[in-house]
Design a binder for these strands. Sequence first.
DNA 1: GCTGCTAAACATA
DNA 2: TATGTTTAGCAGC
Length: 521
Amino acid sequence: MAEPAGAAASPDIDPDFEPQSRPRSCTWPLPRPEAETGGAGGAAEEGAGGAAAGPGRAEGARAGGAAARKGGSRRNAWGSQSYAELISQAIESAPEKRLTLAQIYEWMVRSVPYFKDKGDSNSSAGWKNSIRHNLSLHSKFIKVHNEATGKSSWWMLNPEGGKSGKAPRRRAASMDNSSKLAKVRGKASRKKPPLQSAPESSADSPGSQFPKWPGSPSSRSTEDSDVWNTFRARLSPILTEQDDLHDEELLPSLVYSSASSNVPPTVTEELELIDGLNLMSPSSSVLSTQQSASSGQIQRDSSFSLQSPNAAGQTFGNSLFNPVDISLQSSVSHFSAPQTLEALLTPSSPPPRDVMMTQVDPVLPQTGNRMSSRTLLLLGGQAAQSKMSSGNPRGKPAEQQAEPVGASVLPSTLPIVTSPQNTASITNLKAPVSATAAQSVQLGSPGLLSSASPAPLGLNQDRLPTDLDIDMYMENLECDMDYIINSELMDGGLDFNFEPILPTPSYPSTSQASNHTWVPS
DNA sequence: GCTGCTAAACATA
DNA sequence: TATGTTTAGCAGC
């Protein structure tokens, strides 16, 4: 299971450790059981006697662990470290500070004498279960989608340290409130009610439509709606406050998720729209860059793969906006490509939100970790669309949903594009917009841009210098924003008719609008 | 009561 | 089957 990637990591773990020659202190910076050094090497033996999947149950393990502990500071058969600590060490020992579950297993077997002879399937069930349990339980561990192997996720240490590294969510009793946020980090409960036939989930049928993101609307069960509401309630008005997203592991989790290209387009789209971190929809980019709206073929924007989990993991804060920058790239291409208008007119083409996103995005690199009120405004609209998206009859295949989303979310905006004068209007908008967007790309993440597929950028790249003056860029931005708002809204061009959700059309001028749109379906 | 370990049920790919 | 998540019971502190 340890694919190449895994193998890559292991060498680093392995070389350092020599179970035989190095009883137990091995490489890890453990608070080693100095007390009972004697037990050090003996951990294996005595451990073998009792713990883990040992005699029966916890009692057995207890017995083993307790017995071991009596010798000194050892709490477990393998030493004084908890599973969580061992896992942490395993991860830290990896060159990239991340390991797959299998690699963690491997590390345990290699590095912890006690587990050395417990690698086989029979005797490993118990402790492996505990490993998994701990990984899921502790917020100090974050799961990063592993697109490289396409299988097991990477497990990393929470850059925020998982705080004290203590378990954030405890038993059911303490799960009520405190765990809600913890759940939000992407581990929202997926548990189904015992006999819930889940009509919704059947409607959801492809219910697994958003399998990778437990917190996604479609994946949450009704009983999670409160959590979800809370989440959304927080996000909607707080989209501008990235800081808030930092609590728990929400941020890194989302970042990782965004960075993942394995997430189905619609998932990514919804996820990113919701979390407000990445306003870009891969599907949109696909359509725009490849002009394959009809084919529906999903071609991952190559730029997405640029943000490896690792990269993201090392720049949690800043990389947050990389996806946005990347998305801009697509948006830019969307506008710069001659045929893109055609794409816009195509029912299956990405909704005009790209326009908005393009307007929004440039702010991001400029504002650093904070979005302007304008961004908020636009995000509100974005959120609305997101909501609409999630409000669509679930259970529709992603391919299908992607299309209606665009068509139904902003039913009145598309016509704008189609009408001659509005087309002209849009056309007028396109130039500055694409320029600013492109600039933002440049400003936001030149590295990404340069390494991203240049093809889609084509026109803009030819037109734009590689490094633009930020002031100029901002001026354009301000100008465009006003222009857009004034011209489009004042002459009634934009009719944000959120009919499906909002009985009364409302202009998404503030977070209020976005709040409305977060109404759970 | 908190923490940690273990087992197990359940879900998903 | 592997991976993840969650719940529950138990024991030590």
